[in-house]
Write a protein that binds this DNA or RNA. Structure first.
Lengths: 187, 187
DNA sequence: GTTATTTCTTATCATTTGTAAAGTTCCGTT
DNA sequence: AACGGAACTTTACAAATGATAAGAAATAAC
């Protein structure tokens, strides 16, 4: 997935503004297993995944909790680092070799003040991510783990082939043992 | 809490732009128990709570699930209606008599295209709400209902006096019975 | 290709949470 | 002040989930 296509899918803006924005991205080739918080400065960068699969997780009482998956076209950033500039509780792990597009957050925020189309691109970007976050929040509150599992593999069946089940279990908010029981029940 | 203060707390912008934005709001006095989806068009409006308390809920299998509380200064809108323009799964209930500031969503989006400061105000608004939504999502995944209950009353102790416990239980993702057990354990 | 390691599943038991129903307290109405 | 109804708590039992451990399958290392 190329950069122009990714930018357009967020929100189409005039060619000139899009070029201005696109110029500020650099392409990175990264290895499976890389942790972006440790190896890159995720707090001060915004990434988009061109190829590959990634997860966001946080550590609670020594246990990793996966709360997000991203694949081709997904944004990859620390929301807390990006929005508030504060240190983040999260890290991002590449689950496959990946191609990323990176932009410096400070530079992006500068563009927001200079170009109204880019500002609205950033607004729509945040709005769409907000809607997704709220839908996941409600889904978690309203639906059982089994329903959420069915939904996940309906939306993105590849995830079963590409991500370890323990991460999927964590994402669904259950233990790997419970996910096994769910899977045994279904098939 | 007055409108200017609310707008400033989202993101301060130059006086002229702020005036332009503020002009488009109207003030509404509403009664406790009012449902904004039924009585107002929440899909096409954005509100801010000047006074009062409100909740957002959705109905799942005939059961109301409260997924959000808002108080003085909080935005009050259907994210889905606002972002995607589609029909929403949610309704907003006023838990107290309330004073609201209302702006038409179409008019607001028009302002975004005309004034870069307002566009960035809207961007920061979405970003901040996004961060809150993500923090709640992670909190729900990582913390027990008891921890989230303690946090809620630490952040907003008034909620115990102003909202029925069954809504708080629903918000925490447990039944009223379980919330009673949590409360009995604590005190 | 074999071995070693990790991942996933299955089984057992303990804990937590939900459901249903009964009891108590709190509020508003008359 | 008394009544009626709603909200909250408590109890008993059932169902679901977690923890632990052992076994099977898949993957990686050599």
């Amino acid at each position: 997935m190329d950069l122009m296509q990714i930018l357009d899918e967020v929100y189409p803006i005039p060619e000139q503004s899009k070029q201005l924005l696109a110029q500020c991205f650099e392409q990175l080739d990264c290895r499976k297993g890389q942790l972006l918080f440790q190896t890159q400065k995720i707090g001060s960068s915004v990434y988009f995944l061109s190829q590959g699969l990634a997860r966001a997780y946080t550590v609670q009482d020594g246990v990793e909790v996966t709360f997000w998956f991203g694949w081709e076209g997904s944004p990859l950033l620390s929301m807390k680092g990006y929005v508030s500039g504060e240190h983040s509780y999260e890290d991002l792990e590449l689950l496959e070799n990946a191609v990323l597009f990176r932009i410096d957050a400070t530079q992006l925020k500068h563009l927001f003040t200079k170009d109204i189309h880019i500002a609205n691109w950033g607004r729509v970007f945040a709005e769409k991510e907000l809607l997704k976050a709220e839908e996941r929040l409600i889904s978690r509150q309203v639906k059982t783990a089994e329903m959420r599992y069915r939904e996940l593999i309906a939306v993105y069946p590849d995830i079963l082939l590409r991500a370890p089940l323990r991460h999927i279990a964590s994402y669904l908010g259950v233990t790997p043992v419970t996910l096994s029981r769910i899977r045994a029940n279904i098939s």
